[in-house]
Amino acid sequence: MPAIFPRWTNNVPIAIGLLAPLIGAGLIFIVWYWFSPSYTDVGYRPEQPVPYSHKLHAGDMGIDCRYCHNTVERAAHAAIPPTGTCMNCHDLVKTDSPRLKLVRESMASGESIPWVRVHQLPDYAYFNHSPHVAAGVGCATCHGRVDQMTVVEMVQPLSMGWCLDCHRDPKPNLRPLDEVTNMAWDVEKTPYDPDRDPMRKRKVNPPTHCSGCHR
């Protein structure tokens, strides 16, 4: 009786034994590396309808973040400013710049400028800016050096693991309460211990349980 399987099939179990772990590890690597927000989200840099430069306004001119994002200390959402905020100055500065055409049109018509949102958490994650700012987490900690960005981009993954890293050990990411909007503040240059800061009324104690963020 002739053999049902040819001779080379003897090698199949060995091949599977060798390849399966490799393929398995490869799949895990692919999901770990390419499915992570560190890959899908970081570096997202949409073109905005108006070429507003944070580098010019927040960096070179040193305008505080809260001049425009004025709700950040009081509300969950750090508001994208209305056109009126732009016009506080641009009614008087660069009044005929072609790059500001859309701003002037928006002011005249009352239609919002279609700014493109850069940072967006999933809808099942609750996030509130105000307690983070009150706890002394700097803007730059999550948003990067926006004062050096001509076009704003995502620099942190805003993933759950990344949130928890800080919620479990917030200390390294805390700074003096009056340095929150200071983009250049650097823990390396000015060592800071939140436990010894007399300005702080209570210890920062971020939630790490599920319903802290998934309410």
Binding site: F35, G43, P46
Partner: peptide
Amino acid sequence: GGCRGTRSEDPPVHL
């Protein structure tokens, strides 16, 4: 696939 942190104007893909 590219590398992590590559700049892109396309909105993040939700796999």
